[in-house]
Simulated scan of single mutants.
Amino acid sequence: MSSTSSSVLRADQIWIDGKFVKWDEGHMHVMTHALHYGLGVFEGIRAYRTHDGRLAVFRLREHIQRLMDSAHICMLQMPFTIDEIMEACVELLRKQKDLFANGAYLRPIAFMGDGAMGLGAVNPTRVVVTAWDWGAYLGEKGMREGIRAKVSSFTRMHVNVNMVRGKISGQYVNSILAKREAVLGGYDEAILLDISGFVAEASGENIFMVNKKGIIKTPPLSSPILDGITRDTVLKLIRDSGRTVEEVTFTRDALYICNEIFFTGTAAEITPVREVDNRMVGDGKPGPLVQFVQDTYFRVVRGQEPRYADWLTYI
């Protein structure tokens, strides 16, 4: 059994450019272009232990399709097809089935490799898939009780600067700075505004809110936000329940006076927000909508909702 720390399990092998190698042999040259200039794309994907004891990857094809789309946006030529990368993910988990019996986090990444340097260089694309055991990104307590968030002094980049349909490695420096600022200030997460001052998203999650009239809102895809797969999942779950969601812009003070806020993301899953900028959200605990979304989401990923069975790829 291997680990990146005393408490985090990771795979014994890594898939690199079509071959499995030992974790400790997963090296890249220091002159890798992406290390210098940030030209890479990646995904975060979760596999869950289902109610019948099997392991299933959640929305694998959608994630790998987004990886390919991100690469296309960046003009990275992908040497593998969607099906080949999907199979790499499945095979990696198959090889580690005993280690990850309770679930795993997959990280496919594609990036410009070593060769020529400079901004105009075009080198072969390297593709890697790794996996490890990653619990609740914002903490188990945060999942249960809600987290504290801070509106960041850093702004989410304009849509003509930030390629918002791509999950691009270098663009996450903006998120890292916002996250560090929030954590150093004693908060759990940052909320970034767009250049017009409207709420965009958190450092690594999409955001939903419920106002005092019970209207559910989330920023639209015309905002500088990632088209989150968990966001899309939650939109469908809410709408399938007969509720309405408005995809509209809203201001930070709308968050201050709303009844509920929660974040969505593969890593964060469904995380309630109990406080924003030292202002309690609602009554300071997870509300009825986020409780419904959490319960339904985890039933879906654990294979307990047959109508969404096609979202699961069993190992």
Results as ranks from 00 to 15, higher is better:
31 M>C: 04
209 M>T: 14
99 L>C: 09
205 E>F: 08
225 I>G: 07
76 L>I: 01
50 T>W: 09
257 I>H: 15
139 G>D: 02
103 G>F: 05
13 Q>L: 07
295 D>M: 08
184 L>N: 13
24 D>C: 08
167 K>E: 05
142 G>V: 04
69 D>F: 07
37 Y>P: 02
194 D>R: 03
195 I>S: 13
80 F>R: 02
161 V>W: 00
286 P>V: 08
53 G>C: 13
270 I>S: 05
107 R>G: 03
297 Y>W: 02
273 V>I: 13
215 I>W: 03
292 F>E: 06
47 A>C: 09
2 S>P: 12
167 K>A: 02
250 F>C: 13
155 T>Y: 06
45 I>L: 09
289 L>H: 05
10 R>A: 07
154 F>L: 14
85 I>G: 03
166 G>D: 02
191 I>S: 03
63 H>V: 01
24 D>A: 13
62 E>S: 15
194 D>Q: 07
81 T>C: 04
227 D>G: 12
143 M>Q: 14
203 S>F: 00
129 V>M: 04
118 G>W: 03
251 T>P: 05
290 V>A: 06
93 L>V: 11
297 Y>N: 06
205 E>R: 00
174 N>Q: 11
269 E>K: 10
288 P>I: 07
30 V>S: 03
198 F>Y: 15
169 S>P: 00
111 F>I: 10
309 A>F: 08
239 R>W: 00
166 G>H: 04
160 N>Y: 09
202 A>D: 05
141 K>D: 14
103 G>W: 05
304 Q>L: 13
56 A>N: 13
17 D>M: 09
269 E>I: 08
243 R>N: 06
246 E>M: 14
227 D>C: 12
114 D>N: 14
198 F>W: 11
58 F>G: 02
61 R>T: 12
271 T>A: 03
148 R>P: 01
142 G>S: 00
58 F>D: 07
227 D>A: 15
228 G>I: 03
310 D>W: 11
283 D>W: 12
208 F>K: 12
92 L>R: 08
155 T>H: 12
269 E>R: 11
208 F>M: 09
146 G>S: 09
259 N>L: 01
50 T>D: 12
147 I>G: 11
35 L>M: 06
266 T>D: 07
248 V>W: 04
177 L>T: 01
259 N>T: 13
85 I>A: 03
28 M>R: 03
99 L>F: 11
297 Y>S: 11
40 G>E: 08
250 F>R: 12
39 L>W: 00
184 L>Y: 12
135 G>M: 13
92 L>G: 10
124 P>H: 05
157 M>S: 13
177 L>A: 07
122 V>Y: 08
295 D>Q: 11
11 A>H: 06
252 R>T: 05
127 V>R: 04
101 A>W: 11
145 E>I: 06
221 L>T: 06
67 L>A: 07
24 D>I: 07
204 G>Q: 08
194 D>W: 01
151 V>F: 01
76 L>G: 02
